[in-house]
Design a protein around this nucleic acid. Sequence first.
DNA 1: AATATTAATCGTAATATTGCAATTAACAAA
DNA 2: TTTGTTAATTGCAATATTACGATTAATATT
Lengths: 110, 110
Amino acid sequence: MGLAKTEMFNEQQNEISLFAKVFGHPARVAILQHLFKMNACVCGDLVNEIGLAQPTISQHLKELKHLGLIKGNVEGTSVCYCIHKENWTAMKTVMTEFLNQDLTTKQDCC
Amino acid sequence: MGLAKTEMFNEQQNEISLFAKVFGHPARVAILQHLFKMNACVCGDLVNEIGLAQPTISQHLKELKHLGLIKGNVEGTSVCYCIHKENWTAMKTVMTEFLNQDLTTKQDCC
DNA sequence: AATATTAATCGTAATATTGCAATTAACAAA
DNA sequence: TTTGTTAATTGCAATATTACGATTAATATT
């Protein structure tokens, strides 16, 4: 049904998957990397930098903003975007805990 | 068109997004967490643990295996799964580098 | 061999995602 | 106020994902 049964999973599992999902498209990864590199930049810069159409970039920005990972600031006719540092740090905590689950000591089955 | 334009992005960006995508469903997060907790377990255990139908779990396991994050070992009529430790560690390096991009020093636009 | 058990595969319905052309909204400049 | 500039929104086509019933494959057990 194209629809994840989120009610079967706990809050942490759903949160991890939501963060991961937003990183699950190379355009959004590229947008975030560019924002880190440039610190802040305008939507049009991202359109030029990445090469997708303006509505497509705008849509990806919307998803990143919706999850709180970026902030947008209207400056005249432009909109300047940057990383939402506090939220990025919080996200990093959640994701890092997931990635750093203990691999030591135990024996494989294969 | 429902199809990511991967040719517009570099290898690292595509790799990050592929790893992230596989974590972008709570069932796969739950499967991985259970494998970490139990160290190794059989497909049927995951079906009971998670509560999705057997073909659904099997499909999620296939995606995790395809990316190399888990290994499967046939044991009679069962199949025992576990984390592929080397590949998990390699994935962690890639993802951690992405998550740990420098947040300091620079000024926001908003 | 016949039967049971377990997991993979196939087929399909429902929904989600991606991408963009066309349009609209919001503001600036002339 | 008209014109330009920039970004958001709308609408839609193409494709992907999720879920599961039905079936198949592979191996054990009797």
